[in-house]
């Protein structure tokens, strides 16, 4: 009688951890990269997005200088800048990842713009993205395709 309850409680404790663990994390050098996600697309005509969280655990600054992925012919880094209520999306040459800081590419700020899609991004699928860092080199991470209505990573990582 008691056993199933204990098992149930154990499961209840473990399940959220499992849900979090679903979010891939890749570490290389001082950097850890996690919570990579994108939104499903309709066809390939419109660009897709790439969001990710990068943590610099070291004592030297690094920079994200570019992204590569097989799903898009032309991936680029952009920043959404809102000034006086007007949004513009200038190209970002590089994104600083200061020592000891966590930087998120997230809605309304820095984001990867995946242009010239090779195929429609379907919800539930995932694809690899390689991030190029000035010091840490190349880091590849599996990127989850979330529903088109998604507003944040499924594993709920906040900056």
């Amino acid at each position: 009688m008691i056993k199933p309850i204990i098992a149930g409680l154990g499961l209840a404790a473990v399940l959220p951890a499992l849900a979090l663990a679903e979010c891939a994390e890749v570490s290389q050098g001082d950097l850890s990269v996690r919570a990579a996600w994108s939104r499903a697309t309709i066809g390939t005509a419109r660009p897709a997005v790439f969001y990710v969280t990068i943590q610099n655990n070291g004592s030297t600054d690094d920079r994200l200088t570019g992204i590569e992925t097989r799903v898009a012919g032309m991936p680029m880094l952009h920043e959404t800048v809102t000034k006086d209520g007007v949004a513009s999306m200038p190209h970002a040459d590089a994104i600083d990842i200061p020592a000891g800081k966590t930087v998120s590419l997230a809605p309304g700020g820095y984001h990867g713009m995946l242009m010239n899609l090779e195929a429609e991004l379907k919800e539930g699928e995932s694809f690899p993205v390689t991030l190029q860092f000035e010091k840490a080199g190349e880091v590849s991470i599996d990127t989850e395709v979330l529903p088109i209505r998604a507003r944040e990573a499924a594993c709920g990582v906040a900056p």
């Binding site: 939104r39 419109r46 660009p47 897709a48 997005v49 952009h78 959404t80 949004a87 999306m89 809605p107 309304g108 984001h111 713009m113 995946l114 088109i148 209505r149 998604a150 507003r151």
Partner: peptide, 17 residues
């Protein structure tokens, strides 16, 4: 405009919610 990958989908998601 729908070719915008960041702000527009985010705002439309909020509106849908």
């Amino acid at each position: 405009f729908t070719n915008c990958p960041d702000i527009c989908p985010t705002t439309m998601s909020e509106v849908a919610q």
